[in-house]
Design a binder for these strands. Structure first.
Lengths: 216, 216
DNA sequence: TTTTTATCGATAAAAAAATATCGATTTCTC
DNA sequence: GAGAAATCGATATTTTTTTATCGATAAAAA
C-alpha cells in the first residue's frame, strides 16, 4: 500500500514560538558566538529543549552535535518561514491613536511589512502625514488597492465601521487582513484574516491572575 | 481504587475563543432574542458548533434543547471566567505612542482593567495627563505599587529598557505583566506574564499570505 | 589518541485539543 | 395532541501538539 507523504505545514503554535526565538536570536547575534543550541534557547525562554528542536526542524536547518545551530543560518531561515525576508506593502485604515501607533512602529520594517498609505474619514487627518505616511480619504481605497496591487489591509477603525471597511477592501481585491477592531468580522473563506484584538491576551492575563489570587 | 477527579482548568485556546464569543454575544445582546445556540455562534464565526458547545461547558451554564443558551447568562458567565466582572487596577509604563493608544482605549473598562497611572522618563510627559491618566516618573513606581496594591503592570517601553522595568516592578510586588515590548523578558516562575507582541500575529499573517501566493 | 560530554535528530509515547456520534429533551408545526 | 425538528450534553474517536527515549556524532578534555 502506498502511503502518501503528508505535507506538514508549520503549526500555528510553532510559528508563534519561531517569532519569539527570532527576537532572542537577534539579541544574541551581536554579542555571542556563532552557534546556539536548542538547550540555550530553551533555558533563556523557559521552554523545553525538545520542543525548541522540533520547532527548528521546520526551518530545514541542520544543527551540529555539541555546538547547536549556526545563528546566522537560523536567523535567516526563521525569517524565511515567516516571509520576513521579503516586504509586502500594506494599507492601514483608521488613523486614530492605535492606528497612529502602528504607523509609527519602525520595527515592522524588519517583519516584512511596509505600510504605504493610511486612510480615514476625519477631514482633519486627510492630507496629513503621520510618521511620514500620507493619510487619504477612505473613498480612495478601491482605486488604490488595484493600482498599487496591495495585498494586506490593517483594520484600526472602531467596531461600528469595521465590517464595512473590510467589505470594501475585500471587494477590491485585498488578500489578507490584520484586524485590530474589537469585533468579529466576516470574510470569504479564501481571504486570510488574523485577529489581533488586545482583549484576547488581556483575557488570558486576567483569568490567570484571578486563578492565582483565588489559590491563596 | 479511588480516582481523583482532575480539576479541568480552562484551556488557553478556549479562553481566546471565549473572548471572541463575548464580542459576538455583545452585539446580539441588544438586537436579538433572549437565546442563542452554539450553532448560531458557530455559523457567525465560522467554527464548529461542537467546539463552541465544548467551550461553553467551561462556563458552567446549561443550555436548553432547541433554544440554546440564555444570552444574558452566557454573557455574565464568560465575563466571570475572564474575571471581567471585577476590575483590577494597573500601571502602564512607557507613554510613547503605543502606550498612549492603550491609555486611551476605553474598551478595557469592560475588560476588568483600569489603568490608574502611567510612567515614563521623558520630562515632557511627566506631570501631564493622557486620556485623564497622570504620568509619573518611573522612580515613583516602587512606592506606588506597594501603596496602591497594584497587581498588573503594562510594559510599553522600548526593547532596551524592558527587562529593567520588569525587574523593577517584580521586585516591588507586581503579580502580572502584560508585555508589549518586542523582546523576551525574564520573570520568576510565580509571576504571570502575557506577551502581546504584535509581531507574533503578524508572523502568522505573512506566513499564510506567502503560502497562499506560492500556491498559485 | 582515547575517553568523556553535549547536542542533534529519528522514532515513540503521552497529553491536549478538535471533531464525531448519538440518545434525551423540548419547542415548534401541523 | 402527535409528530417533526433542532439543540444539548455525555461519551468516544481522531488529530494535533507536546514530551520522552535513545543511538549517532563531533567537539572538548584527559
Amino acid at each position: 500500500m502506498i502511503k502518501l507523504e503528508k505535507i506538514k505545514s508549520t503549526p500555528i503554535p510553532t510559528l508563534k514560538r519561531l517569532t519569539r526565538y527570532l527576537s532572542v536570536i537577534h539579541q544574541l547575534k551581536e554579542s555571542k558566538t556563532d552557534y546556539i543550541s536548542s538547550t540555550e534557547i530553551a533555558n533563556i525562554m523557559g521552554l523545553d529543549p525538545i520542543q525548541v528542536r522540533k520547532d527548528l526542524e521546520f526551518t530545514g536547518i541542520s544543527g551540529f552535535p555539541r555546538l547547536g545551530f549556526k545563528i546566522d543560518d537560523l536567523h535567516f531561515a526563521i525569517k524565511e518561514i515567516l516571509n520576513w525576508n521579503n516586504t509586502e506593502d500594506a494599507f492601514l485604515v483608521g488613523a486614530g491613536s492605535l492606528g497612529q501607533a502602528i504607523l509609527g512602529y519602525d520595527r515592522f520594517k524588519s517583519c516584512g511589512l511596509k505600510i504605504i498609505a493610511g486612510f480615514d474619514i476625519n477631514p482633519e487627518l486627510i492630507g496629513k502625514k503621520i510618521s511620514n505616511i500620507e493619510i487619504y480619504h477612505i473613498n480612495k481605497i478601491p482605486n488604490l488597492i488595484k493600482r498599487l496591487n496591495v495585498k494586506i489591509g490593517i483594520i484600526c477603525v472602531p467596531a461600528s465601521s469595521a465590517q464595512d471597511v473590510v467589505d470594501l477592501m475585500v471587494d477590491n481585491g485585498i488578500l489578507a487582513l490584520w484586524n485590530f477592531a474589537p469585533i468579529h468580522v466576516n470574510v470569504p473563506s479564501d481571504i486570510i484574516i488574523e485577529n489581533a484584538q488586545l482583549s484576547q491576551s488581556l483575557g488570558i492575563l486576567t483569568h490567570k491572575l484571578a486563578e492565582k489570587i483565588k489559590a491563596y
